[in-house]
């Protein structure tokens, strides 16, 4: 069985994670642009970052037969300064032309402020203008419900957004049904501690069915582990789900969503 990892921040990981993922049959990974654990001090730092994830990381991944794709944007944790954010947004179009850049992401909300919402909306417009997919970061913990509803209201009221081309990430029991009801895609992120567990993710798949659902792990600079994706696959198999059903969630669903970019090179199984 082949696996697609739709959300991992490899810039924060060692080559050992590439080795482990390769051994666990991961064939493609996607790296959304996000915060680096500290605030960057200039827009130029984002230019370097986008260059790193669109040019250097694919070469590191290729050594392990893994296709590396990325998303670019100004992330919500650094979007409070509107002027700064607009400077970053000004050079995003040059990266959208690159062969492994799949769209705008992970845009979204962190504290759900007015300024964050302004920059979220401007990046949605940029995505629409360039016919790009959108990957959305929803706030963590107790801000998740409010932030998710704000973005859902905005996107459903917009009129020009096709929900089939938008992924809401970091979904949990209280936000997942809202996103699916409106026809958007939903991703659940598994963490080793404090957030979604493999068990809760499989519960959600059993409750809501496999349509428009994907699962990703939490490879970043905090407590996280790309292998939690494979723990979740094991949990699904342990519960007696067929190989076909498992393959749908961990390969075909992300493949179907990502292929809309026109750049994702894997075929559906």
């Amino acid at each position: 069985m082949k696996i697609i990892e739709p959300h991992v921040h490899m810039i924060a990981r060692t080559v050992q994670d590439y080795e482990r993922m390769a051994r666990m049959h991961t064939v493609a990974i996607c790296e959304p642009a996000f915060w680096a654990g500290y605030d960057r001090t200039s827009p130029q730092a984002f230019h370097d970052y986008f260059t790193h994830i669109s040019e250097f990381e694919p070469t590191r991944a290729a050594q392990y037969l893994i296709q590396h794709y990325c998303w670019v944007c100004i992330n919500p944790k650094e979007a409070e300064d509107v002027g700064f954010s607009r400077e970053v947004i000004s050079f995003i179009p040059e990266f959208l032309k690159k062969p492994t850049v799949l769209g705008l992401g992970e845009i979204g909300l962190h504290l759900s402020t007015k300024n964050e919402m302004t920059i979220f909306a401007e990046q949605v417009e940029l995505a629409l203008k360039h016919d790009q997919l959108i990957w959305i970061h929803t706030p963590h913990l107790n801000d998740k419900l409010r932030g998710t509803k704000l973005m859902l209201d905005y996107l459903t009221g917009h009129g020009g957004v096709d929900p089939d081309r938008v992924m809401f990430d970091h979904m949990e029991e209280h936000t997942l049904p809202l996103v699916l009801e409106h026809g958007f895609w939903a991703a659940m992120t598994v963490y080793p501690v404090t957030k979604n567990s493999p068990q809760r993710v499989i519960d959600a798949i059993e409750t809501y069915g496999p349509d428009r659902l994907v699962v990703d792990a939490s490879g970043d600079w905090g407590p996280s582990d790309p292998a939690t994706l494979h723990d979740t696959i094991f949990e699904m198999r342990m519960r007696g789900h067929s190989d076909k059903a498992v393959e749908r969630i961990f390969y075909n669903n992300p493949c179907q969503f990502l292929r809309q970019s026109g750049k994702f090179r894997l075929e559906m199984m």
Binding site: L141, E173, V193, T194, K195, S197, Q199, R200, D203
Partner: peptide, 20 residues
């Protein structure tokens, strides 16, 4: 707080899983 929050949600999810 994060660990307590998580332990409580995991326990609640397990009750839901059993009931379903």
């Amino acid at each position: 707080y994060l660990h307590m929050r998580s332990a409580l949600i995991e326990t609640a999810a397990t009750f839901d899983r059993i009931q379903a």
